[in-house]
Simulated scan of single mutants.
Amino acid sequence: MILGGTEFVGRATAVEAVRRGAEVTVFNRGRHPAPAGVTSVTGDRLTLESLPGTWDAVVDTWSGAAEAVERTARLLKGRAGHYGYVSTRSVFRLDDPTRLVDAEEAGYAGDKLRGELATEEFGGPVLLARAGLILGPHENIGRLPWWLNRLARGGPTLAPGPRDLPLQYVDARDLANFLLDSAAAGTTGPFNVISESGHTTMGELLETAAEVTGGRAELRWTDPETIAAAGIEPWTDLPIWLPPGELHDFLHGGDVTDTLAAGLRCRPVRETIADTWAWLQSLPGEAPQRPDRPAVGLDPAVEAKVLGE
């Protein structure tokens, strides 16, 4: 059973589970088409009163209020063998990554931590998959798709440095594999589900993406000080990128020793980039965008001004 199952991580998990020969049920609000080979059940988790059936494993990708996690975990108690909840490394405090944020904290981090706590209602084996930056085909946040479309347009392109800046992320399909493998093995507890720090660099990411999209872009590596002086926001105006410093170290320096030992395997960055570009080219229109997340990307006029100066 996949709670979600039609977008990004949920879709990747459903597709992989079907490929492995599993009987897959996806439960969601029916706003997006489900992958081939699954049984779809439509409903609203916030008002759900029953969820009949039994399952070997459940994967939960919910990112909103923890009430939904608490409700489904309680309803599935005794009727599923394993509960995998996709959480986030944002549950850790920025100033002390060994400690969790306050359970009363508002916003995304607080919702995810409360979701983790709500899985206790399941009363059985629970995996907390604390993902970091997630990339890959069917991304509905727009980070890697924005870069690929920008590089495909070609011409002088602002490339945020330093070029050797290490990145740490997980391909949605590798996250899906870890969730399914963990369910089969009965793995429990919290794991930072991301690649090793430095799995790729900003330079390798953009240079590979420029090559994959046709080689029309001229990367102009620009130092963080120049970018900041221009009022360009890391992460939002320039997706994926954070300048060296505390926030970068937090997001791209997580300890994954236990996760690798538990079986996480991360594909090369070129495969993630090439497959995402192939997916984008297959779409009849624009890439999907989550309505609860702001659009990302740099204003072309701002980019041109910085490069001109």
Results as ranks from 00 to 15, higher is better:
280 L>S: 01
65 A>M: 12
48 L>T: 01
97 P>W: 05
159 A>R: 11
139 E>F: 08
106 A>Y: 09
9 V>Q: 07
175 L>I: 13
43 G>L: 10
18 V>A: 13
41 V>I: 13
33 P>M: 03
73 A>W: 06
107 G>S: 12
22 A>S: 09
40 S>C: 14
155 G>P: 10
16 E>Q: 15
106 A>K: 13
182 S>P: 12
74 R>A: 15
86 V>A: 05
134 I>E: 06
126 V>L: 11
25 T>S: 06
248 H>V: 04
62 W>P: 11
75 L>N: 07
167 L>T: 01
3 L>P: 02
290 R>E: 05
85 Y>P: 09
218 E>L: 12
104 E>N: 12
37 G>H: 00
21 G>Q: 07
45 R>T: 07
153 R>W: 05
201 T>K: 06
183 A>L: 12
251 L>G: 01
112 K>P: 13
162 P>R: 04
150 R>G: 04
281 Q>I: 09
22 A>Y: 11
258 D>H: 13
183 A>V: 12
106 A>E: 15
300 P>W: 10
237 D>L: 08
80 A>H: 10
106 A>M: 14
51 L>Y: 14
301 A>L: 12
107 G>H: 14
230 A>R: 10
5 G>I: 00
190 P>V: 03
285 G>Y: 07
3 L>F: 07
245 G>K: 12
262 A>C: 02
97 P>D: 05
92 F>Y: 15
99 R>N: 05
209 A>G: 13
13 T>G: 07
56 D>M: 08
62 W>G: 02
38 V>R: 08
121 E>P: 08
41 V>S: 08
7 E>P: 03
